[in-house]
Design a protein around this nucleic acid. Structure first.
Lengths: 256, 256
DNA sequence: TCACGAAACCGACGGTATCAGGTACTGTGG
DNA sequence: CCACAGTACCTGATACCGTCGGTTTCGTGA
C-alpha cells in the first residue's frame, strides 16, 4: 500500500549527530551536551518547514534553496543540516501539509454518515488545500524530478493512504484486499486532475465554486459519470464514524 | 507573452527563420532559397523529436539537453534552433506521443460498441504507452516546472481532450456542456494515478497484469468503487444500452 | 544566403566545505 | 564547592564546485 507504515519521515540528514546513534551503549550515560539539543532540533526543523512554506507561497514552487534560507533568516548551511536535499525539504513540507489535512479529514469523516459523505469531505479538504496556496500545492505535489521517479513517501501516496484507510473498511466486505489502496490512488489522481484544472480556471466566469465542484467530483467518483440521479442506493452504513487517532504536530501553519 | 495567441503547437522557436509556426509563409514566398529548406525543417524537427525520445528512453526523464543533442548526433545549437527551450521540446515529444495514442484510441473506439468499452480501450492505450517506456512517460507527463505552472498545452490536457470528445457526445444528452471535459480531466487523473502506482509495482509478485488493471480501472471509473454487482439498475438509455455484460468482474480471479 | 555544428561562454542553482564564533554540558583539580 | 579546560553541538557567512539550461561566436559547406 502506499505510504506503508512509515518510518522515513521527511528527508532527514543521515549524519544525525543526535543522541548516541552508534557508539557504545551510552544509554547509561546520556551525555547532556548531546541531549540538550533534542527539542531544539525538532523545534528548529518545524520552524524551517514553516519558513519554506512561506517562501514557496510567496515566490512560487521553484524557489531556490538560497531564497528559502533567506526567508528563514539563515543560510543554506543550516537548511542542509536539517534536510538532506531539496526533495527532502519537499517531503518534509508535504508531510506537514498532509498532517494538516489529516486532522481536517478526520473531522470531515467523523461528521459523515455515509462513506460517500466521507469521500466528499476528503475531496473538499483536498481542494481547499490546493486553493489555499496553489504554490505550496505545486511544490508539494510535483514529482521530485529525482532520477528514480517517485522516491516514495510521495505526498500523493500519503493522501491516498488517508482516503484508503476509512474506505478499506467498507470495501473489505466486498472486495479483495489491496483493492482499496489502488482505488484510493486512482481517486486521488482524479481529484488531482480536476483540482489542477480548477486551479487554472477558477477565475473564469463560468467556473464552478469549490462546493459545487466537490459535489460533482464526489458523485463522479462514487457512481460514475452516467448521471447518478436514479442511481441512489442504500449505502452500507459504515459504522457511525471513522475517527482515527489524530495527533501530528501543530497544524497551525499559515501560509501568507 | 505566453497565452494570448492560441494553441501554439509544440514549442517552436519564434524567431525561426521564415516558417514561423506555419509553413504558410513558405508557400507564399516563391523564393526557391526558402522553400528549399521548408520540408527539410519539418523533417529534421521530427527527427529531433525522435532522437529526444530515444535519449529519454535510455537515460531517463532527466536527460540533459546536451545528451539529447548528442543522441541526435548534433549539438545544442541545433536543438535550440528547433525548440524554444526544454519545455518546448517536452511539449513536442508529448504531442508526438499523443498523436500516436490518438490513432490507437481511435482504433479502440471504433471497435467499441458501448461507451464503456471505448473508455476501456482508452485506459488500455494509456497504460500501454506508460509501460512501453516509463522514462518517456515521465518526461512527457511531468509538469514543466515552469514558473507559471502548467504552461498549457500540457500533455495530460490533450489526453483528456482525446477521451472527452467521444464521451461528450454521450453526455450531451444528460449533462450540461463542459461537464464532459471536466470529467475527462478527472478520469485521466485517475488512470494517471493508478498507472503511476502500477509502474512502480509492476514487478511485485501480486501485481495485476495490465489487462486486469485496465478492466478494474474502467469499472471504477464507470460505475464507482462499490462493486457493481448489486448495482444492476436500468441505465439511462444513453446511446444504446450499457450492456452490463462483463461489467461485473471477471477481474477478481487473478491473484491479489 | 541559409543551415550546420563545434565550442566557448554565462548565469543560476543545488550542494559541499571551511571557518570563526557561541553556549551548555562534563570532567578534572584545587 | 568552585573554577577552568575541554567537549559536543549549533550557527551563519562565505567561498567554492559541478551541472545544466541557454546564448553567442565562428568557421564550414551547399
Amino acid at each position: 500500500m502506499p505510504g506503508t507504515s512509515g518510518q522515513a519521515q521527511g528527508g532527514r540528514p543521515e549524519g544525525a549527530r543526535a543522541a548516541g546513534d552508534g557508539a557504545v551503549e551510552d544509554a547509561l550515560t546520556p551525555d547532556g551536551r548531546s541531549t540538550r539539543w533534542a527539542d531544539h532540533r525538532v523545534a528548529r526543523r518545524t520552524e524551517l518547514v514553516h519558513a519554506a512554506r512561506r517562501a514557496v507561497h510567496r515566490h512560487g514552487p521553484d524557489v531556490s534553496m538560497d531564497e528559502i534560507a533567506t526567508t528563514a533568516g539563515t543560510s543554506k548551511s543550516i537548511v542542509y543540516r536539517y534536510f538532506v536535499d531539496k526533495p527532502g525539504l519537499q517531503r518534509a513540507v508535504g508531510e506537514a501539509v498532509v498532517a494538516q489535512m489529516h486532522t481536517a479529514m478526520d473531522e470531515a469523516a467523523r461528521l459523515a454518515e455515509t462513506p460517500r459523505e466521507a469521500l466528499r469531505g476528503v475531496v473538499d479538504v483536498y481542494l481547499e488545500m490546493a486553493e489555499a496556496s496553489p504554490n505550496v500545492y505545486w511544490f508539494v505535489t510535483r514529482p521530485v524530478t529525482e532520477d528514480a521517479s517517485v522516491p516514495l513517501g510521495h505526498f500523493l501516496d500519503q493522501v491516498a493512504g488517508l482516503i484508503a484507510r476509512p474506505f478499506a473498511r467498507v470495501a473489505a466486505v466486498e472486495a479483495p484486499a489491496g483493492f482499496a489502496d489502488v482505488w484510493a490512488t486512482g481517486a486521488v489522481g482524479f481529484v488531482r486532475g480536476v483540482g489542477e484544472w480548477w486551479l487554472q480556471h477558477r477565475t473564469d466566469p463560468d467556473a464552478p465554486s469549490r462546493e459545487v465542484l466537490t459535489e460533482r467530483v464526489t458523485s463522479w467518483l462514487w457512481t460514475g459519470p452516467v448521471s447518478g440521479l436514479a442511481r441512489t442506493r442504500p449505502e452500507s452504513p459504515m459504522t457511525g464514524q471513522i475517527t482515527s487517532e489524530t495527533s501530528s504536530e501543530t497544524t497551525s501553519e499559515t501560509s501568507s
